[in-house]
């Protein structure tokens, strides 16, 4: 159990999250995948705090901040999802392409 293990693990989580973001059709599914990516990042912070930092407290504070920010993000994103759902009656991202060129 070394830092490298954790880095590889968190990179895998990140890649899995990216895969989810790229393949999910439902907007909520994408948000879910984003959570996976964030989770990987958090794990990375924690691992560095544990294995490397001279000041591990800072490393512990960071995941907490990330959680708070992701809570904000979730709140706003889910509000958007709600209003989008109300407007479009569907959350299929294939159809959400008003910004195409």
């Amino acid at each position: 159990m070394t830092l490298s293990h954790f880095i590889i693990l968190s990179l895998m989580l990140c890649a899995i999250g990216v895969y989810g973001v790229l393949t999910r059709r439902n907007l909520i599914g994408i948000l879910l995948s984003v959570e996976v990516i964030l989770n990987g990042a958090n794990l990375n912070f924690a691992a560095f705090a544990h294995f490397r930092a001279f000041d591990p407290t800072a490393g512990a504070v960071f995941p907490i901040f990330v959680m708070a920010v992701s809570a904000c993000e979730m709140a706003v994103a889910l509000a958007i999802v709600i209003s989008m759902y109300r407007r479009k009656k569907r959350l299929d991202v294939y159809r959400l392409e008003e910004l195409n060129g």
């Binding site: 990216v18 973001v21 790229l22 393949t23 994408i30 991202v93 294939y94 959400l96 392409e97 008003e98 910004l99 195409n100 060129g101």
Partner: peptide
């Protein structure tokens, strides 16, 4: 051809970015 890139699909943009 450039327009094809601007298809408005978030996932396409993200994939290209990645």
């Amino acid at each position: 051809m450039v327009r094809l890139a601007q298809n408005g699909q978030l996932q396409f943009y993200l994939g290209v970015t990645v």
